[in-house]
């Protein structure tokens, strides 16, 4: 009986979690039936991006798990916490810049950093650096759009990232920050 209850519950949870995906799949089904050329094109794009994501994400999540297990909160507070000053900012820039990967892969890492009580300002710096100033991408940007374009964009973005972090720190209240840090801790 208990076993049965558990099964019903997990099916409900599954449906809730996958609702958006299921709706999109139904939509894709409609296209495949009524507008086959668009449907098959979409299916090809979906399969190839899914493959790419499956390739990109596993090592990132393994690194996240290791980072969480092996770094103590105390060390991270010392390195990037409230009183870390310029060193913390530079470190946040560095971690975000050296790593590549899409924006959405940066969020779970930001959460681990919050769990380790890294300063909110540095979290936003990290997200900014992760999204735009990517060393692995820089060479490619230079070859595709020209070195002047890439270098000017990089230089401007260093300022932009710091400005964003300052505005966020000004606007977001302390208790709001502590509530999302609590959420991260429960992860």
């Amino acid at each position: 009986m208990k076993e049965n209850n558990k099964k019903v519950f997990s099916l409900k949870l599954f449906l809730k979690q996958y609702l958006f995906f299921l709706i999109m799949l139904i939509l894709l089904g409609f296209f495949l039936i009524f507008k086959f050329d668009i449907g098959i094109k979409a299916a090809t794009v979906i399969v190839s991006s899914f493959k790419e994501i499956l390739l990109v994400l596993p090592p990132i999540f393994i690194l996240i798990g290791l980072l969480d297990e092996w770094t103590s909160k105390e060390t991270m507070i010392k390195l990037m916490g409230e009183k870390s000053g310029l060193k913390g900012i530079l470190l946040a820039f560095l971690i975000g810049t050296v790593a590549a990967g899409p924006l959405y892969a940066g969020f779970p890492i930001a959460m681990i950093l919050m769990k380790k009580h890294v300063k909110f300002f540095n979290i936003i710096i990290f997200i900014g650096a992760w999204s735009t100033t990517k060393i692995p991408m820089l060479l490619y940007e230079m070859s595709a759009l020209g070195y002047k374009f890439a270098l000017v964009r990089l230089a401007l973005n260093i300022f932009v990232i710091i400005i964003i972090a300052y505005i966020m720190e000004l606007v977001i209240k302390k208790d709001e920050i502590s509530s999302i840090y609590k959420k991260a801790e429960n992860y």
């Binding site: 996958y18 999109m24 979906i46 991006s49 999540f61 798990g65 290791l66 959405y104 779970p108």
Partner: peptide, 25 residues
């Protein structure tokens, strides 16, 4: 660490699948 990695991947998978499919469309 590996269990944690797997759990956080599982956590985000449904949302990612939805996003990928909508983008493809």
């Amino acid at each position: 660490a590996l269990i944690k990695a797997w759990n956080s991947f599982k956590n985000i998978l449904p949302m990612l699948l939805g996003i990928i499919t909508s983008i493809g469309l």
